[in-house]
Design a protein around this nucleic acid. Structure first.
Ligand SMILES: [Zn+2]
Ligand SMILES: [Zn+2]
Ligand SMILES: [Zn+2]
Ligand SMILES: [Zn+2]
Lengths: 158, 158
DNA sequence: TCAAGAAATGATATATTATAACATATCACC
DNA sequence: GGTGATATGTTATAATATATCATTTCTTGA
């Protein structure tokens, strides 16, 4: 069994720092501005490995005294998802931080229904199967949404 | 190349009749009541092979003079999706009719971004790849959302 | 350095999607 | 026909998302 979800008790500050460092690099490469608001939203998303909704982010920002409205949050989310620094989970209307934004793939997401964590997989066999199925029916893929809900390893054993 | 999306000019009345006949059978088998409202909503969904939103259904029902409110539509949709007669497309917040409700599978949906049609696939290789990937990371699957957006064969050639 | 245009955010309003809660009607069964 | 269960009606509101225009901040080049 390989790890996909981070271990309990891992050093999550390192996850956050690494994610921010990567984001800075991506923005730099794209000549995109990693503004305070975008950085703030990105950090909030990375506070956990769970997916977080736009209005949860809004509540946090407002609770910190910022006079932020929904469009501000959605704009930051659009910026981050366009750069693939953040992914939207369609079946949750929620967003979570990508830990491999440099990877050019059809993403697959494992979502634990017990602990709420999300993990992104880069499974080549899945991608191949999807592309093969599409080819068989002469379908030209533009985007895929592959979201797998269930119990993560930790949640089946604890 | 095998067909997945129905041919243009096919006899869609047959699709509708067949879907309703199947739905009646499923409801019978489950001792579930295929009431007028549920039948009406189901028929509306089957007016095309596109996915349709709850509020589009509501508008149609109201335009026909029925005094229907959102909960009525959502209840019918819940009934139909529970029986797997209708599937929800998460990335569209929309619903479309299943043409193989008897099949016990992890569904995969091809969604044409040009013509709007949706087709359900039952691709065993895709299911195997998903189950294998889950097994590798000791993830216990409860449900899957596999939605593939792009251009159907008709829309790439016409 | 600062003027002009571009980009980002603020602010207000509203659209879209979905559900809670309780009342009424209909159905299945005895 | 009475009774409990199921379905629908009705009203209100929650949750998610976007349109529009004003203001601020940034970039860039004279
Ligand atoms: Zn972490
Ligand atoms: Zn878990
Ligand atoms: Zn048809
Ligand atoms: Zn098409």
């Amino acid at each position: 069994m390989t790890d996909l979800f981070p271990k309990k008790g891992h050093d999550h500050d390192r996850c956050i720092d690494s994610a921010i460092a990567q984001a800075e690099k991506v923005c730099e490469a794209e000549s995109a501005r990693f503004t305070d608001m975008r950085r703030k939203v990105f950090s909030l998303i990375w506070q956990s490995h769970k997916a977080v909704t736009a209005y949860e982010l809004l509540d946090i920002l407002q609770s910190e005294g910022l006079r932020v409205q929904p469009p501000t949050v959605y704009r930051a989310l659009e910026f981050l998802t366009d750069l693939r620094l953040v992914h939207r989970i369609e079946s949750l209307n929620a967003y979570f931080g990508c830990d491999q934004p440099d990877c050019d793939h059809l993403g697959q997401y494992f979502i634990c229904t017990k602990c709420g964590r999300v993990a992104e997989a880069v499974d080549e066999d899945m991608s191949i199967a999807v592309r093969k199925a599409a080819k068989q029916v002469a379908f030209k893929i533009e985007a895929t949404t592959i979201e797998i809900k269930g119990l993560c390893h930790d949640c089946t054993t604890h």
